[in-house]
Amino acid sequence: MNSPLPEPALAIAAAADAPAVLEARGLSYAHGAAGPVFSHLSLSIRRREIVALLGGSGCGKSTLLRVLAGLARPAKGEVRFLDTVQAAPHPRSALVFQQASLLPWLNLADNVGFGLDFAHQPQTGKAARDERIKAAIAAVGLAGREGAYPAQLSGGMAQRTALARALARQPELLFADEPFSALDAITRAEMQSLLVDVVHRWHTAALLVTHDIDEAILVADRIVLMGGRPGRLLHEWTVDIPRNREDHPEAVGALRLAILGALRHAS
C-alpha cells in the first residue's frame, strides 16, 4: 500500500485497461420538484484512474458527485461500485470537500481516524487502524503533527489532513469536490501534485470535480466536460501528456485551447 512511486507511465498504462471501479448508467436527478439537474448521464471510472469532472459553476457537478458517492439517490439509473449496485455509500469510497471540515474537538490523528470504527465500516482491530492512520498522515507529509488541533493548522495543512482522513479508509475511489479552490495559488499547486502522488502510491482512483481547466489538465488522466440543461457529459479528453506536465507547455497549451473551444461551444 505504501510502496514507493511506481513509474508514472506504468501507472497510466495500468489504468487504461483496468476494470471499472465505478460505473454509472442512465443517471437522472432532480432537487424536489425542480427540473432535472442532469439526465441520461453515464460515466465509468477505471481502477487507479484520475478523472477530472470539469464544468461551469451551477452545472450540477456537486450534485452528480453526491449521487455517484451514494449520498443521494438518483431518480433514474444505477451506480455500480466494484461491480455491485450501490445502495449506500461504499466503505471503500471517501470524500474530500472544498472546506477541510475537520472536527475541531479532535486532534489531527483522531480526525484522520474518524469513523474507521463505525458499525458499518469493515471491522478492524485498533492496532490495524492506528497503522492506517499513521501511514495516511505520513503520506500527506504531516508526520509529527498528530497531536495538533484544527485551530492550530493552516488552510493547506487542514486540507492535507482532510486528504489523509480520506486515505485512511484505503479507498478504491476518492471523491474530491473542488478540494483546492479555497487555497492560495502556491498551496494549491503543492496540493495538486500531492494528490497525484498519493493517488498513484495508494493505487486509488479519483474523481476530481473542478472548474479550473489548468487543474484538470495537470492532475487528470481523463477529463470529462459537463454542461447543458439538464446537465450531461459533453466531451471527453484522455490526457496522455507525460508527467510532470508543467514540463510540456506546448501539449498543455494545445489541450487547454481544445477544452476552451468546447466550453465556448457548450455555452
Binding site: 458517492a69 451514494g70 449520498l71 449506500a88 455509500p89 466503505p91 469510497s93 471517501a94 470524500l95 470537500f97 472546506q99 471540515s101 472536527l103 475541531p104 474537538w105 474518524f114 469513523g115 463505525f118 458499525a119 458499518h120 465500516q121
Partner: peptide
C-alpha cells in the same frame, strides 16, 4: 452545524446514534 460533517457521517454510513454522539453533540458543545 457544518453540513459537511453530516455528509462525512453519511459517507461513513454512520448510524443515527453514531451521528448524534460523534458529530452533533460534540459539534454543538461549543
Amino acid at each position: 452545524l457544518d453540513k459537511n460533517w453530516l455528509l462525512l457521517a453519511r459517507s461513513l454510513s454512520a448510524t443515527r446514534r453514531e451521528t448524534i454522539v460523534h458529530v452533533i453533540l460534540p459539534g454543538i458543545t461549543a
